[in-house]
């Protein structure tokens, strides 16, 4: 996408759909988490109604204090704090996944909304498109 195309995105009009990105993998052991984040950032240019869900090991993507120098990989956790500037503001985290891992919302690098199972299930059912990672 050229810079100009990206500037025109608002003029595109069209139907706004509800997109949910479901993240269920820890950040560095596989490429899923980084790929998901990149798709979210690219997709943000299309002005859709975007939500991110973090379930199972996906909650580990958001933990504070990540230091990746020693493994020679980029620490992409600060990028979650940039999502707001991309108008991606709806971040939902599964309560049971946090609890099972001894975590709570204060351990996460960004403000999130913590949902119980029923709320998360309802969130999923209201989407037009679900991207799973």
């Amino acid at each position: 996408m050229s810079d100009e195309d990206m500037m025109d995105d608002e003029a595109g009009g069209g139907v706004v759909k509800k997109f949910l990105y479901v993240n269920r993998k820890a950040p560095y052991g596989t490429i899923y988490a980084l790929e998901s984040l990149e798709v979210v950032l690219i997709g943000a240019a299309f002005d859709q109604d975007v939500s991110l869900a973090f379930i199972d090991d996906g909650v580990y993507q958001l933990t504070k204090g990540q230091q990746t120098d020693g493994i020679g990989m980029k620490n992409f956790s600060p990028t979650y704090r940039a999502l707001e500037m991309y108008d991606v503001e709806k971040l939902y985290v599964d309560q049971d996944s946090l609890t099972a891992r001894g975590l709570n919302a204060e351990d996460l690098i960004v403000p999130v909304e913590v949902l119980n199972t029923t709320q998360m299930a309802e969130l999923m059912e209201t989407q037009d498109v679900v991207f799973s990672f």
């Binding site: 810079d3 990206m6 500037m7 995105d9 950032l41 943000a44 240019a45 980029k74 620490n75 992409f76 956790s77 600060p78 990028t79 704090r81 940039a82 500037m85 991309y86």
Partner: peptide, 27 residues
């Protein structure tokens, strides 16, 4: 340095506007 990402142009424009004012935060 802060976000580990090179911003997309619309994000850059908005962020520049916030920091340096509307005279500079425009395409």
């Amino acid at each position: 340095d802060e976000y580990q990402i090179a911003p997309a142009v619309r994000v850059l424009t908005k962020a520049i506007g916030k920091k340096l004012g509307p005279d500079k935060g425009n395409s």
